[in-house]
Design a protein around this nucleic acid. Structure first.
Lengths: 153, 153
DNA sequence: TCTGAAAGTTTATGAAT
DNA sequence: ATTCATAAACTTTCAGA
C-alpha cells in the first residue's frame, strides 16, 4: 500500500494531481497529452490515486457571495474539556459552521463560520457561548485562498 | 445578469449545484436524471451557472496527510497598517500559507498554514514576526470541514 | 503501458413547448 | 426562452498484446 503510493507519486503522478486540482473535469485524453501518457494509461493512474485515497473527491466550487453568504468569521472558544463533545456536535449540526478545529492554546476550538449578514453572527455565537468564552473575528477581506490546493513541491 | 441569476437558482438549479459540489465528475446524463432534465438541458444549465460566475471551478480534493503535509495551524498577526502590503505579499508567496484573511479585532491577519512537521512552523512564523506579534495555534484535530460546501438552504 | 474497438458521454442541431 | 430528441464527435473503457 505504501510502495504503491511511492510509485504513484512520481513526476507524472504529481502532474496529474496538479492538473486535476486546477480542473477536475479535464478529459483523460487531454490530461494524457499534458502528462505524456495515453488516455487509458492516465485513466488507470487516476483510478489508483483514488483507490489509495490520495484523491478524495471532485467538487464544484461555488461563489458564496453570489449564493447569499458573503460574511466569513472566525470564532474562538475558550471552554472546558467536559464540553468538548457538545461543542463538536453543535458545530457539526449548524450549517453556518464551515470548519471546526480543536486547537492548542488558550482557546480549545477555532470555528470558521459563513453567514448572510454580520448580524447573523450573533445567533451563532449565542449557540456556543453557553459552553465558554467566545472571541469573534470578522473577515474583512481574503487575500490568499489556496485551501483546496495541496502544494506538490 | 441578476434576473438570469434568479432563474438559475430555482429548485433544479440548486439541485444541480448540490450534486456538482458532491461530485464534480458526474455525467450530464446521470445529473439530468437526478434533477429531472435531459442531458443537453442540464449541460446548458451548467454552462450558464459557469457563465454568471456561480460555479467558479471544479477541483480534485487531495489528502494533505498522504501528500506529506499533515500539520495545520493558525497564525494570528498583530501588526501595523504600514506592513499590510508586505504581509499580504509574503502570504501569497509562501506555499505553506493556505489562506490569508484580513480580520477585525486586535490581530489584523489570520493565516492558515500547512506544513510537514510542527518544527516547520517555526520557520513560517519567523517570516512574519518581523512585522509584528504572532500567536500560533496548532490544529490537533478537525471535527468539521465543510469549507468547500456552500449550503444551499 | 500501448493500440484499437465497443460502449458511453458530450455537444450541436432542429423541432416542440 | 427553455427543453427535448436525435445524430455526430468525442471520451472512456475494455480487450489483447
Amino acid at each position: 500500500m505504501d510502495l504503491q503510493k511511492e510509485k504513484l507519486l512520481d513526476g507524472i503522478g504529481r502532474k496529474i494531481l496538479t492538473a486535476l486540482q486546477e480542473n477536475a473535469r479535464i478529459p483523460f485524453s487531454r490530461l494524457g497529452k499534458r502528462v505524456g501518457l495515453s488516455a487509458p494509461a492516465v485513466a488507470e493512474r487516476v483510478k489508483r490515486l483514488e483507490a489509495v485515497g490520495i484523491i478524495k473527491g471532485y467538487h464544484a466550487r461555488i461563489d458564496p457571495e453570489l449564493m447569499g453568504r458573503p460574511v466569513t468569521a472566525f470564532i474562538q472558544l475558550v471552554t472546558d474539556t467536559r464540553y468538548y463533545p457538545a461543542v463538536k456536535k453543535l458545530a457539526a449540526d449548524l450549517t453556518e459552521i464551515q470548519a471546526c478545529h480543536h486547537i492548542s492554546g488558550e482557546a480549545a476550538f477555532m470555528l470558521q463560520v459563513r453567514v448572510a449578514e454580520v448580524a447573523d453572527l450573533e445567533a451563532v455565537v449565542g449557540r456556543f457561548s453557553p459552553y465558554g468564552q467566545t472571541r469573534t473575528a470578522i473577515v474583512l477581506s481574503t487575500t490568499v485562498d489556496k485551501r483546496e490546493m495541496v502544494s506538490l513541491g
